[in-house]
Computed example of a mutant assay.
Amino acid sequence: MARIGYARVSTLDQDLETQLARLKAEGCGIVRAEKVSGGTREGRAELATVIEFLRPGDELVVTRLDRLGRDTRDVLNLIHEAEQRRAFVTVLDPHVSTRGEMGKIVLTVLGMVAEMERRFIKERQREGIERAKAEGVYAGGKRWLDRERIKMLHADGSGPSAIARALGCSRTQVYRILRE
């Protein structure tokens, strides 16, 4: 039986150290961490590795349920996948585990709260953007894709899938830029 820790923060400027220290203090021999949004499971390679690694009797440990995910369905699917592997999920704050039926109920409710909190965050963000636009100070988000490079690769004969793979983005983003 192994205790495997998983730590996650949403943005590159956030710090993982507190979560990592707590998971190690709780006896997690293996700890995987990543800096990626918890809104979906897309792009969460470390989480996929942890789930794939789980063996019967293992325990996946997270400091808070929202570290596992902010979508109720995703969280419940992750718990189900762990159970399919006859492993357990334990949340440290508040301390809840899927070892018992009551733990599963509490984790379901906490998953719903995490999703609701994500909606509130998005709503506040949207309100802030609208306020900034009304005041004329909103400049939009930072563009992280090199539009000229995408157009150049396309002109050189690369297809949208190849461009997306090369730049680490989605085909939808490539198509959107090519339509501009």
Rank of each mutant, 00 (worst) to 15 (best):
residue 169 C to P: 13
residue 24 K to P: 08
residue 156 D to I: 00
residue 82 A to M: 03
residue 148 E to G: 15
residue 64 R to A: 06
residue 58 D to H: 09
residue 10 S to N: 14
residue 162 A to N: 07
residue 103 G to A: 12
residue 37 S to K: 13
residue 158 S to H: 08
residue 21 A to S: 13
residue 87 A to C: 07
residue 67 R to H: 05
residue 80 H to N: 05
residue 178 L to Y: 10
residue 123 E to H: 06
residue 117 E to D: 15
residue 13 D to R: 13
residue 22 R to P: 03
residue 103 G to N: 12
residue 113 V to W: 03
residue 55 R to N: 15
residue 61 V to I: 14
residue 89 V to M: 00
residue 31 V to S: 14
residue 104 K to Q: 11
residue 120 F to V: 11
residue 86 R to Y: 02
residue 56 P to A: 12
residue 51 I to W: 03
residue 22 R to M: 10
residue 88 F to W: 14
residue 44 R to S: 01
residue 104 K to I: 00
residue 68 L to V: 13
residue 17 E to D: 14
residue 107 L to D: 00
residue 71 D to L: 00
residue 169 C to N: 08
residue 87 A to Q: 00
residue 47 L to M: 13
residue 108 T to C: 14
residue 153 L to T: 03
residue 126 R to K: 09
residue 37 S to C: 12
residue 153 L to Y: 12
residue 174 V to T: 05
residue 44 R to G: 01
residue 129 I to E: 13
residue 111 G to H: 01
residue 170 S to Q: 10
residue 31 V to G: 09
residue 179 R to V: 01
residue 55 R to D: 11
residue 62 V to E: 03
residue 176 R to P: 06
residue 169 C to R: 06
residue 156 D to E: 14
residue 46 E to P: 06
residue 180 E to C: 00
residue 133 K to M: 11
residue 115 E to W: 05
residue 8 R to I: 00
residue 103 G to K: 10
residue 151 K to P: 06
residue 3 R to G: 05
residue 32 R to A: 15
residue 94 P to W: 00
residue 114 A to I: 10
residue 171 R to M: 06
residue 9 V to M: 09
residue 73 R to P: 04
residue 160 P to A: 15
residue 35 K to T: 02
residue 102 M to D: 12
residue 148 E to F: 03
residue 102 M to N: 08
residue 103 G to H: 09
residue 125 Q to W: 01
residue 76 L to I: 06
residue 149 R to A: 08
residue 65 L to Y: 10
residue 137 V to Q: 11
residue 92 L to N: 07
residue 71 D to Y: 00
residue 21 A to C: 09
residue 72 T to Y: 01
residue 27 G to H: 07
residue 58 D to G: 11
residue 142 K to T: 15
residue 59 E to A: 08
residue 43 G to C: 12
residue 177 I to M: 11
residue 121 I to T: 08
residue 95 H to N: 08
residue 9 V to F: 03
residue 166 A to I: 02
residue 106 V to N: 03
residue 84 Q to P: 04
residue 60 L to Y: 12
residue 54 L to K: 04
residue 44 R to N: 04
residue 88 F to Y: 10
residue 125 Q to K: 04
residue 165 R to D: 14
residue 16 L to G: 13
residue 177 I to V: 14
residue 29 G to P: 05
residue 35 K to N: 07
residue 156 D to M: 13
residue 59 E to C: 10
residue 81 E to W: 02
residue 1 M to D: 11
residue 58 D to I: 11
residue 86 R to A: 04
residue 7 A to P: 02
residue 157 G to N: 04
residue 180 E to R: 03
residue 50 V to F: 05
residue 67 R to M: 08
residue 83 E to V: 06
residue 82 A to Y: 02
residue 104 K to R: 15
residue 72 T to K: 07
residue 43 G to T: 04
residue 10 S to T: 11
residue 98 T to I: 02
residue 147 R to L: 08
residue 156 D to T: 02
residue 9 V to P: 01
residue 85 R to V: 01
residue 93 D to V: 09
residue 88 F to V: 03
residue 112 M to R: 13
residue 178 L to C: 01
residue 97 S to H: 05
residue 153 L to R: 11
residue 132 A to M: 04
residue 45 A to R: 05
residue 149 R to S: 04
residue 161 S to D: 14
residue 67 R to Q: 11
residue 61 V to M: 07
residue 50 V to C: 12
residue 159 G to T: 00
residue 60 L to S: 07
residue 102 M to T: 13
residue 168 G to N: 06
residue 177 I to N: 09
residue 92 L to K: 09
residue 47 L to I: 03
residue 148 E to M: 04
residue 58 D to R: 11
